[in-house]
């Protein structure tokens, strides 16, 4: 490899794979690391075309990559995050990771002889370890991000995330002049239920009610737990008639719902307030206030029913 005796020794001892190609992609040289992990004989590799010796290489991509190294006379890189591996090599953690082939960071180096590019050196780093832990970390981050959005008991969106969704939907509806409806639910006599059957019963009711309402909404609707026994749904692109229709249906389904707790059949009902975005709403909180007023109206006029913000306006005007 070089006149310097250290270079040969180090290249052989290095924990990095070295593969040297000429400009016709024939393999001129490799080091011990590469040979060991490729499980190939030198005679199958040295002097052979790189695509013959390593048929797993994506040929077109590889050629274009090397052409940038040759033409621009510059280094090029390939990370495991974009391509897990280029060469099918074994790695040093076959037992404690589930990676079949070595995850690789590859560097392509132009090599000049008398100021003209004559060869390309490919360096292969084993990053199976990094890949393993980064994958685990990403999984945990995803779980954390999910936990940060979900209400632990009912598994629907929590208040914080639900409000963020509403904030976004509100701005979008404002900007594009689209419809947006809000439905708020408050379970009737929930405190009495807790006092009579205990909090575990209350929890079961919350879980099953949340599940039921979720199942009756569209995929694009965003449903969350607003507070104790209050839930709320955001319905994008929906007008008042549509939203009241959905609310009525949910209200009836909840009334029919029979929740088993121990050996008792628990029946519940919910009061519902509906509001849609109107030109006076400056902030998403205004929309919540309107739905809240409608909800209060439903509670005050007998429970287990749907009231909408429009009706209240009408009543107030009279």
């Amino acid at each position: 490899m070089s006149a310097n005796p250290f270079c040969t020794t180090i290249a052989e001892q290095l924990n990095t794979g070295i593969l040297i190609l000429d400009l016709d992609y024939n393999i001129v040289e490799w080091n011990r690391f590469f040979a060991i992990h490729a499980h190939k004989d030198a005679k199958e590799v040295i002097g052979k075309n790189v695509f013959t010796a390593f048929p797993e290489l994506p040929q077109k991509w590889f050629e274009r990559k090397l052409s940038s190294v040759i033409q621009l006379n510059t280094q090029s890189f390939c990370s495991w995050e974009q391509r897990h591996h280029l060469f099918e090599l074994s790695h040093t953690r076959p037992i404690t990771t589930d990676s079949h082939f070595m995850a690789q960071n590859c560097t392509f180096l132009p090599i000049e002889t008398d100021k003209v590019i004559s060869h390309i050196c490919i360096l292969i780093e084993d990053v199976t370890d990094v890949c393993h832990y980064q994958t685990k970390l990403n999984k945990v981050l995803d779980e954390l991000a999910k936990a940060n959005r979900i209400d632990g008991l009912t598994q629907v969106f929590n208040r914080k995330h639900w409000e963020e969704c509403l904030d976004k939907e509100f701005s979008r509806a404002r900007r594009y002049d689209h419809g947006l409806a809000l439905i708020m639910f408050d379970l009737d006599h929930f405190k009495l239920l807790n006092d009579t059957y205990g909090h575990q019963c209350g929890d079961t009711v919350l879980i099953e009610t949340a599940q039921k309402i979720s199942s009756l909404l569209r995929l694009c609707d965003q449903f969350g737990r607003y507070g104790g026994e209050e839930f709320a749904a955001i319905l994008p692109e929906t007008d008042l008639i549509g939203a009241v229709d959905v609310a009525e249906r949910i209200c009836k389904e909840i009334e029919k719902l029979v929740i088993k707790f121990q050996d008792k059949d628990i029946r519940i009902s919910t009061s519902v307030g509906v509001a849609t975005i109107n030109p006076n709403d400056k902030r998403y909180e205004d929309l919540i206030s309107n739905a809240d007023l409608a909800l209060y109206e439903a509670k005050a006029t007998g429970r287990n029913k749907v009231c909408s913000a429009k009706e209240i306006e009408y009543i107030l005007e009279e």
Partner: peptide, 28 residues
């Protein structure tokens, strides 16, 4: 622009590849 087939590489890889080409060509 890079001369790849669109399904040969992800958008991330394209961006990284082009970045490296622009950076190293200028700095060399």
């Amino acid at each position: 622009l890079l001369g790849y087939e669109p399904d040969e590489l992800s958008v991330e890889e394209q961006i990284i590849d082009l970045s490296s080409i622009l950076t190293t060509t200028f700095l060399n």
